[in-house]
Design a protein around this nucleic acid. Sequence first.
RNA 1: CGGUGAGUAGCGCAGCCUGGUAGCGCACCUGCCUUGGGAGCAGGGGGUCGCUGGUUCGAUUCCAGUCUCACCGACCA
Length: 576
Amino acid sequence: MLYSRYFIPTVKETPSDAEVISHQLMLRAGMIRKLAAGIYNYLPMGLRSIRKFENIVREEMNKADAIEMLMPGVQPAELWQESGRWAFYGKELLRFKDRKDAEFCMGPTHEEVITDMVRREIKSYRQMPINFYQIQTKFRDEIRPRFGLMRGREFIMKDSYSFDVDSQAADKSYDKMYNAYMRIFERCGLNFRAVEADTGSIGGSSSHEFMVLADSGEDAIVSCDSCRYAANVEKAESRIVQENAAGEQATLEKTATPDKKSIADVAEFLGLATDRTIKALVCASDTDEFAMALLRGDHELNEIKLKNALGWNEIRMATEEEVQRLTGSPTGFLGPVGLKEKLLVVADLLVQNMTNAVIGANEKDMHYRNANPGRDFNPDRFVDIRNVVAGDCCSRCDEGKLEMWRGIEVGHVFKLGTKYSQAMNATYLDANGKEQIIFMGCYGIGIGRTVAAAIEQNHDENGIIFPIPIAPFHCSVVAINAKDKGVMAESEEIYLKLEKLGIEVLFDDRDERPGVKFKDNDLIGIPLRIVVGSKGLAEGKVEVKIRATGEVLSLPIEEAIATVQQMVTSALEYKE
RNA sequence: CGGUGAGUAGCGCAGCCUGGUAGCGCACCUGCCUUGGGAGCAGGGGGUCGCUGGUUCGAUUCCAGUCUCACCGACCA
């Protein structure tokens, strides 16, 4: 490709609304441009990277016996009403009507459509296992799109759906996809973790997320420093270490804590560590059910765990007015003792063994000292509802401690069980001619998000450093002076030779000063660069520069070509 | 939707407080010059100052409304 005839609109200045580095660099490198909030044009360079990654995904999907197809972006409401998600999905589902007033939506995911197709076409146990996938544009009307391709409203996703005769077979399909995902992200050279995850609105029994590690990641994940356990904090469990209650239970005693609302303030005021206090939070469901959560003062509530424990659809913190009505007290002084109205009280497991703790008295400016569970209050349930913290003991092995990371969710695999097949009546006949419900799994990869995550993980002050497998071009040839006929002729020859070898080359033939070319080439992240100048040429040599390391090799022309070819080939090779 | 901030040339910004019809840097066009890390000189093009209404002789500037965008909270590939 000739740079002068191609389209790479780079910019020097960072657009002011781009916050994370991948967004800034994709804009500056001319890969994407915003059309509307969370909706982007993929410019040629951006598209090339995306296609590269899509092809890796495609290869691994095919290898894992998934079959490619393509489903529509626009979907009829009936299917969603049938699965129950028309009501459940909320505003994220972009809905509209056609000229006949029939309701439709932009597909945010395709469980309904694929299940509909499968229930019509798959009739026998002989047709399974089967797994369909597509690489297609999704639309989710996110409340807050941000970070460029990281969280767009319109985005490209690879989604696949497996269909099996029973749960065991479905587990096998799941494992196959899990392994394919591992290979996909390994092939891209990404530093990632597969972690246990909450199933969220997709539903189903269990799932793993694939998280690219990056400080800008929106998810917190933990992993054990000793065994293979890793999980999203939403889901992560730690081993409960039962600390033995220290000392005798003292007498419950009401004490004034004027204006001390936060745990830190109360603890300081009473001269105690925060772990001797109990925090009480009032939560509400979407149907206005309420519950009080109790946690050790230094711990954080995990809303997902609480939501799941209560079987709620949604969870939110109660408003100040609701709290006042239920407890008779303003927030900051809440506790389980002497509640005004009957309220479900859920305590974290670690509250169980606390002795002589400080709790709110449900009265402005008042707390209790020496509160003891079992004696002074009896929670309805003890459940794990706290966020694990770094240093917690691993729940899966004896010696491990948990470490915390930030991650970008680039892939997610779910065991769906019969959630959709049951609702939509997708059945087959088994060997005995008996009708059975199909078992499903679904698997997604954010294509654009993975490219953004790769940039997030691979860049320096000069720009992007693409891993070769997903780089828009493998190599560039930079002619130092476009007016120097000898330099241009030699550059062109190298360019053509490399192309003949199957290397994807960007030939920077522009009549620009060298500095401009170097800056642009660094910014757009081409992994390898051959620089052709008149001085080197006088000795029959050109330079090979490696973007990632900054290493420069001065080599005879043929050797330079061979070096580039060898580097590209070895980078594209996947070692099992 | 709630909270915060911003809308002035393609991008990054100034001007607004103290009304008088708009400016800087980059980018773009022409010419000269230059060619190993975003050069220099000269000339040039480009703006209904987000939109609507009000106040005023006169509004980018003051007032009201409205739209859009970004950031902080719940969702997710």
